[in-house]
């Protein structure tokens, strides 16, 4: 068990190491370096020299990688070209804002997804299932920018219930931020909930078809007791991984939603730093988003391990 946990953690670290290599090599082999890309037509003479010196681009690539990696581990990602300040300081409020958005969406999304998934599975192919499944298919296939745009059009413009876009500074406090995030949260939670509900549904259906549930039915265990005691605990375990992947997607992949609502989170920083051709920030974002992805998956794996008695005994036997 312990060995397995250590192995998972090591694999995660190796993945992160490769990610850092990929982002470094990637920005290295694509045409232009951070300075010429950023300065564009003014990339000559004194200005270019100064930029090179600031980023330390005049030393060999592998040395630069080592020093960058050593600093990055300590939380220092270097200097943001467009922000004119250390990347650390640019990132701080952005991460906080994205976390607020994500945690509210998760907080709302997971219970709804569980209820929808269980309802659709228990009434499989009946009216509630057909209706809810149709809606979830729509919610998860339609691109984020379309559902977000439609939300703004209907709720903000036609009904005039809520403001359409977020107009707050990046470093606003939590309670000032809250009323602004309703629409972005709905847009994100919709897609997330749809994905999770479908997963829960198929998981519950699988368990319902298993032999021990059939046995319980034959023995005359009351229906709801069977559902809550025998089906759900077993059905929700595999859902943990999907929830983790969805959360990881939520933290990194909401770029488009954040742009639509003008929300000052990590996603908009991705677009801003790429439009500004600020390669050091892009590198830092790649590493941070990848670490979030890796650690959430790791957490989900560990949780599945801890909660699954079968896996535990399996490991001991081995």
């Amino acid at each position: 068990m312990l060995f397995l946990i250590i192995k998972r953690i090591l694999l995660g670290l190796i993945t992160l190491f490769i990610v850092s290599l990929i982002t470094f090599v990637g920005t290295e082999i694509l045409p232009g370096d951070a300075c010429t890309t950023y300065l564009e037509r003014q990339a000559f003479g004194e200005q270019l020299e100064a930029c090179y010196r600031r980023l330390g681009l005049n030393i060999p690539a592998y040395e630069r990688y080592v020093s960058w990696a050593v600093n990055a581990i300590q939380g220092d990602f270097g200097y943001s070209l467009s922000g004119e300040m250390p990347i650390k300081e640019v990132l701080g409020p952005r991460i906080k804002n994205s976390l607020v958005l994500a945690s509210v969406a998760i907080f709302i999304g997971i219970p709804i997804a569980l209820i929808l998934g269980i309802v659709t599975a228990l009434w499989r192919d009946k009216l509630p299932d057909v209706a809810i499944s149709t809606v979830t298919i729509f919610a998860m296939t339609i691109p984020e920018f379309i559902s977000a745009t439609l939300l703004i059009l209907i709720i903000a413009i036609w009904l005039e219930w809520l403001p359409g876009i977020v107009i707050v500074p990046t470093d606003v406090s939590f309670f000032e931020l809250l009323p602004n995030i309703i629409l972005p949260v709905i847009a994100i939670a919709m897609i997330m909930t749809a994905h999770m509900a479908r997963m829960v549904r198929s998981s519950v259906i699988q368990v319902m078809a298993s032999e021990y549930v059939q046995m319980a039915i034959l023995k005359g265990v009351p229906y709801w007791k069977m559902v809550f005691k025998h089906v759900l605990p077993n059905a929700l375990l595999p859902a943990i991984n999907v929830v983790a992947l969805t959360i990881a997607w939520l933290l990194g992949g909401v770029v488009v939603t954040e742009v639509v609502f003008n929300y000052p989170g990590l996603g908009r920083l991705v677009i801003e730093s790429i439009s500004n051709r600020d390669l050091p920030t892009v590198q830092a974002l790649a590493i941070i988003l990848a670490s979030i992805y890796v650690s959430i998956n790791l957490l989900a794996d560990l949780m599945t391990l801890m909660l699954n008695p079968r896996l535990k005994t399996l490991q001991i036997r081995k």
Binding site: V255, V256, V270, I274, A286
Partner: peptide
């Protein structure tokens, strides 16, 4: 391992770059 590493970089970041 390399595929895993690529999977953990958000596609949109890589594509935009």
């Amino acid at each position: 391992r390399i595929v895993d590493a690529f999977l953990s970089i958000p596609w949109i970041l890589a594509m935009l770059l």
